[in-house]
Amino acid sequence: MTTAAIDNARLENFVMRTIGDLTAAYTGLMVSIGDKLGLYKTMAGAGPLGAKELAARSGCAERYVREWLNAQAAGHYIGYHALSDTYELSPEHALVLADEASPFFIPPAWNVPAAMWFDEDKALHAFRTGEGVAWGDHHERLACGVAAFYRNGYKASLVAEWLPALEGVQQLLEAGVDVADIGCGHGHSTLFMAEAFPSSRFHGFDTHAESIQQARGNAAKAGAADRVNFNTARAADYPNKQYSLICFFDTLHDLGDPVAAAKHAAEVLAPGGTIMLVEPFANDKIEDNLNPVGQLYYTGSCLICCAHAISEGGKLVLGAQAGQARLAEVFRKAGFTHFRRAAETPFNLIFEVRR
């Protein structure tokens, strides 16, 4: 123990901060339960509801519902009206908690920390040995949580904002070209593009067989199986179809050898083709990422992104907070000469890359 003088005010502030973080973890479980039981959807647009009424409408037990409501009210996720002993979900909070089509919908994201906790023993082993943990070796809730977390954000921005920010790409897609989506996961990003550009052909690749199976099912449901195909392949060995657009959606930093992936992209890219690189938002300096978004991404990077990159050999472990300068260097080493930040959001950086 340190013998330095203790600043009691500083100690108290930090204790309360840790209690706040602990409370957030508890709240995440409450959000997941509220989502899966349809409690938020029942409250959305319904105005003030008592615990008994909400329980009846949702088919749940009143005593549990009341305690859940109080937990949510204490966290200001829902409002409480003391005079009428009722609870209300505001329209703004409904966009975050009840509307599955909203770009702000967050409940499925709590599957990710749930998987992290489930895999704690694997993380401890990795820390002690330096070994990696492959994406497919995590609990199944990880893939589902990540896919759901990114899905609505991509749906809101990919076709409407990101693709138009790339010079000439939208016109090529409208005319009809081949497109590769590397690390496609459940295929949401691939299918959003396929729906918007029916003249083009889309090819999704991922090393995770279970995700590819899910992507094929999503393509069948969307009626796009004739223009979209999904196959297992690594980022450095997928087939050469001279793609006019190659996409890396929050994937490059997960790879064990991102330079090799960039070199392969250069080999299979059609003349005049473009790479769209989407990466987690990060500044180049660590001190500029010390904020809630950085905290979220560094944590995920530690337990998921770096772990997977190491499992693939770890020649260059970028991590989820790589920043523009390091990403540009990857493509420079692969022979690309054009690297431009085309767009950004609070959570993502979007780059246009060309030879």
Rank of each mutant, 00 (worst) to 15 (best):
A4C: 07
D7E: 10
R17F: 15
A25T: 11
Y26V: 11
G28N: 07
L29S: 11
S32L: 12
G34C: 10
K36S: 13
G38Y: 08
Y40W: 14
T42S: 13
G45Q: 01
G47Y: 02
L49P: 08
K52A: 14
K52F: 11
K52E: 15
E53A: 11
E62Q: 12
E62S: 05
R63S: 13
Y64H: 14
R66N: 11
W68R: 01
W68K: 02
Q72W: 09
A73Q: 05
A74K: 09
G75T: 13
L95K: 15
D99G: 06
E100L: 10
S102W: 08
P103M: 05
P107E: 01
A109R: 13
P113F: 03
A114V: 09
A115H: 06
M116R: 13
M116S: 14
W117K: 14
F118P: 00
A126E: 08
F127C: 10
T129E: 08
G130D: 09
G132W: 01
H138I: 06
C144R: 15
A148R: 14
F149V: 02
F149L: 15
R151L: 08
N152V: 04
G153E: 06
Y154F: 15
L158T: 02
V159I: 13
L163M: 15
P164A: 06
G168Y: 11
E174N: 12
E174H: 10
D178W: 02
V179D: 01
V179N: 03
I182H: 01
T190R: 04
L191V: 02
F192A: 04
F192L: 12
F192Q: 06
M193N: 08
A196Q: 03
A196F: 04
F202S: 05
H208M: 09
I212F: 07
N218G: 09
N218A: 14
K221Y: 07
A224P: 06
V228H: 01
A233Y: 00
Y238L: 07
P239Q: 10
S244H: 07
L245S: 03
F249R: 02
L252R: 00
H253Q: 03
D254W: 10
G256S: 07
E267A: 14
G272P: 04
L277R: 00
V278P: 00
F281R: 15
F281S: 12
D284I: 00
K285H: 13
L296V: 09
T299A: 14
G300M: 14
C305N: 06
C306V: 03
A307C: 07
A309D: 00
L316T: 04
Q321H: 00
A322E: 01
A325Q: 10
R326F: 05
K333L: 12
F336P: 00
H338N: 09
L349T: 07
I350V: 13
